[in-house]
Design a protein around this nucleic acid. Structure first.
Lengths: 253, 253
DNA sequence: CGCGTAATTGAAGATCTTCAATAAGGGTGG
DNA sequence: CCACCCTTATTGAAGATCTTCAATTACGCG
């Protein structure tokens, strides 16, 4: 009855050390072994704004962000854009996730390097591969949890709360003691992530700054002097650190 | 290269016939076999508004809606509610999904009957069970896809579009030829799903009715005379039918 | 029939967006 | 190094959208 979270985790930590891909050197990449055997692997260098997407039809494809920041997003017919996730280095994106009829893609928020792993050829045998399926489950579960928080934010937080939560979230996920948090995305990207528009984001950032919740060094760098003060402004629990899919610590090159 | 979607599907359809639980008789329940072996199983009868949630700490628990309509929702400290999914009979909800610090639960939109499967005791061995992991992956993937659409709706559709999409979605998922679509939820539930408030939902329903997009027989029953006309009002693809996790067709009492 | 809940509707107010004007950087070429 | 241009960010004012509040109506159930 008294299981630790680790024990319930579907991953098998003891195997991680082996999982180093000859191509990208990410430690703990769940695809490394399969790629070595027979999966197709490609690397994309994307410049800011560039995107990649799955071809039509079913495919079993994954993208791993190696350098830079990327985002998954949907486009509507009339050009409206919604960013679904912000993906930092070490994040694996499941191509399966993409519904067949939606305009959905992985887009570079900054120049970035992305590994593409295509396991379509191995799809049948992977259905019996518990280790692989455990990795996929964990990936999907992590994404689902984040997506659920996103839904709650968009549905029930006002614009001030959304931007405040966003800044706190980025600080928690990407901040380092002593150094300012770097926003690797434009105001438009922030707006498209938060369901607002550029002008509103800008206006709210000034309000947050004037309220003393955040101190900006430049338009893309800031400190959060008092995270508890930020938490008091939010009706939800403060954001928790990302439990990244892959061990980014061992990232080489 | 030319795989059908079915082949990429992680499930193993040929096993389904066996999967009938002695308790609830749902055909194709992926948990039936494990429950028979050693999992804990409970059934909950929930009256409208009642909810169940995971106890504190890690657990591997699933809920399957047998009768009635349920919803997963989050509550904020100040009482705001956001409905994350609307779950019809045959839907499996993953207890894992619940983040530890959020007030999140499964709530009855109508009186309903819910199976609870607790596999915490089997967690360690299930990490090596490919069939189980494939089922979980499929569940998570389906939920993630729906959640992604939800994010896009809340972020980038205005209130008229949201309600219109919602009505079309419910018609596509639960409608039957010739019969009116039944909304098994209150205006407040709809509002909490769409990130609006009760009054707005009501006002917009009147606008949609006056625009001739929907014909109401009662406040909770309606026809969609022309789905294409509805689709023309939306900047996104019309909703697609649910690919339900479990075969609800064979459902006996 | 009467009561309580849920739904509808109008008017006023708050919030967010749109539009337009201005400011701030960042790079390039002289 | 500086002037110039282009992109991005900021800000104000007006307008649209959504919410709040209050009043009214409809519906279900005893």
């Amino acid at each position: 009855m008294n299981f630790q979270t680790d024990e319930l985790d579907f991953s098998n930590a003891s195997c991680r050390a082996e999982r180093i891909c000859a191509k990208c050197k990410i430690v703990g990449c769940p695809f490394a072994r399969r790629v070595a055997r027979s999966g197709t692997l490609a690397q994309h260098r994307l410049t800011r704004g560039q995107g990649i997407q799955c071809p039509d039809g079913a495919c079993l494809r994954f993208w791993i962000v190696i350098e830079g920041y990327a985002a998954t997003c949907t486009y509507f017919r009339d050009g409206r854009r919604q960013i679904l996730s912000i993906d930092e280095p070490g994040t694996a994106v499941c191509g399966l996730m993409v519904a067949e009829d939606s305009e959905q893609r992985l887009e570079a928020l900054t120049d970035c390097l992305v590994c593409e792993v295509d396991l379509t050829e191995q799809a049948l045998e992977l259905r019996n591969d518990a280790e692989f399926l455990a990795d996929v489950s964990r990936m999907l579960h992590e994404r689902l949890e984040r997506s659920i928080v996103h839904v709650s934010m968009l549905g029930r937080l006002d614009s001030f709360e959304r931007v405040t939560y966003f800044l706190a979230d980025m600080a928690t996920r990407h901040g380092r003691k002593g150094a300012p948090v770097t926003l690797s995305m434009s105001r438009e990207d922030i707006a498209d992530y938060l369901g607002l528009n550029t002008d509103s984001v800008s206006r709210i950032l000034t309000r947050i700054r004037k309220a003393g919740l955040v101190r900006f060094v430049s338009p893309t760098e800031y400190f959060v002097p008092d995270m508890k003060a930020v938490a008091r402004r939010l009706p939800v629990a403060a954001p928790t650190p990302a439990r990244s899919m892959l061990a980014t610590g061992g990232h080489v090159q």
